[in-house]
Amino acid sequence: MKAEDMIDRIDEIGTELHFNHFPAGWAWAVDSPFQWTKQVASHLGGVRNPLIVKWPAKLKATGETRTQFLHVIEIAPTILAAANVPEPRSVNGTAQTPIQGKSFLSVLDDAKAPEVRTSQYFEMFVNRGMYDKGWWAASLAFEPWDPVRGEFDPTKAKWELYNLDEDFTQSKDIAAENPEKLEELKALWWAEASKNKALPLDWRGAERFSAEGTGKPNLAGGRDNFTYKGVLAGLPESSAPDLKNKSFSVTAKVKVEENANGMIFTQGGNTGGWAFYLKDGKLKAAHNYIDVAVYSFESDAALPAGEHEVKMDFAYEGGKEMGKNGTITLSIDGQPAGSGAIEQTTPFKYSLSENQDVGMDTGTALSTDYKAPFDFQGELEEVVVDLKK
């Protein structure tokens, strides 16, 4: 999203209405003096982190720095060595893969100690880096804020080369002056990636957040019908029925008084998802499209007091394409009660932290039409979700 697209909602930024994150420009700025940001494993701005160690009982050095190259895989071996605990080879009868890291207690004891890690490969979203004895080869494939990536040939991607002993900020690319060294590190990267099972490379962006699209395990996978009795709180999205890119319906048996309020069913929150609820007696449905637009619909008339079967039916019209449009239809006791069009739906993931709830909303409100937790007023006998693939 561009800055001009946010101007109309600038006063909302930083409030509970949105999933707040500082802009990419600031992410880069706070990584100074290094290039790039989180997710860019090709450059130190994406992988370098500080480490502070305090152990007064054993370490004589205080207020000193160390410049030896280390990797996060060294942390566990170092703690085990400090505690004089051997690395476990088996846990509850299951053989363990040996830890690849090495203890760096020697570096803590002596600022001039040799590096315990002289070579290390990096990869994330095909942004690749290779460190070897002071040299660093880097290949940037995609900017992390670019979700649309298309086809990519990693064998033809550009590589950069830096000598960290002379240029620790990676400010001068010396690939042209050292072609043989660059080819050596490129070949080493492919060998390390193969050995560490990083291949085949996956350069997709937002698509990788789709559990169905990537085949990630899901406790709800392989099922089309889900019945929930009474109130349900906090079912993770990854364990809930996947409502994305398909038609589905939510049917509930309720008993209410006049002008009842409360959440019947919700999945997601203020960054994307669905809500099916009562507000001042009227049946309502809403879809939040990645916090860019909220499509809301309500029944033509209020729900009378008594026992009813209410339904939200979504007919997806995008075929096999992702994130397309569809039509919402509300019904009360089998009779149509209202409908409307949704121009675009959330294609990959509703939230990094929200859940599915029945009878309440334990996360952020999906729309400003209600305030969480928005407990259901009345009796909620059951809620049935049907997926239509």
Rank of each mutant, 00 (worst) to 15 (best):
K2N: 09
K2E: 10
D5R: 09
I7H: 04
D11I: 03
G14A: 01
T15E: 12
L17K: 14
N20I: 06
F22V: 08
F22K: 03
V30K: 04
S32E: 03
F34E: 02
T37H: 07
H43R: 08
G46P: 11
N49H: 11
V53Y: 15
A57L: 05
A61E: 10
T62G: 06
F69Y: 12
L70I: 15
H71K: 00
V72N: 14
A81C: 00
P86R: 09
Q96N: 04
Q96K: 04
Q96H: 02
T97F: 10
P98Y: 05
I99F: 13
Q100D: 11
Q100R: 09
G101Q: 06
S103A: 04
F104Y: 07
F104A: 01
L105M: 11
L108S: 09
A111I: 08
A113M: 11
A113H: 09
E115F: 04
V116K: 09
R117P: 00
T118I: 08
F122P: 01
F122L: 04
E123F: 00
F125V: 02
G129E: 08
M130N: 03
Y131G: 02
W135V: 02
A137E: 09
L140A: 12
P144V: 06
W145D: 04
D146A: 05
P147I: 05
D153I: 08
K156T: 06
K156A: 12
Y162F: 14
D167S: 12
T169C: 01
D173M: 09
A175R: 06
L182V: 08
K186E: 08
A187S: 15
L188V: 05
L188R: 15
A193G: 10
A198V: 01
P200C: 02
L201V: 02
G205L: 05
E212I: 01
G213E: 06
N218A: 06
L219N: 14
A220V: 08
A220D: 12
R223Q: 15
F226R: 14
S239I: 08
A240Y: 01
D242T: 04
K244G: 00
N245D: 10
F248Q: 07
S249G: 12
K253H: 04
V254R: 09
V254K: 13
K255M: 08
E257S: 11
I264N: 14
I264C: 01
F276S: 13
Y277Q: 01
K279C: 10
L283T: 11
A285L: 13
H287P: 13
D291F: 03
V292I: 10
F297G: 00
P304S: 08
A305F: 13
H308W: 13
E309N: 05
F314S: 00
E317R: 13
G318F: 09
G318S: 11
G323M: 01
K324Q: 13
T327E: 02
T327P: 01
I332P: 06
D333L: 02
G334M: 02
G340I: 09
A341L: 07
K349H: 02
N355M: 06
D357E: 07
D357A: 06
S367N: 10
K371W: 10
A372S: 04
F374N: 05
Q377K: 15
L380P: 15
E381F: 15
K388M: 12
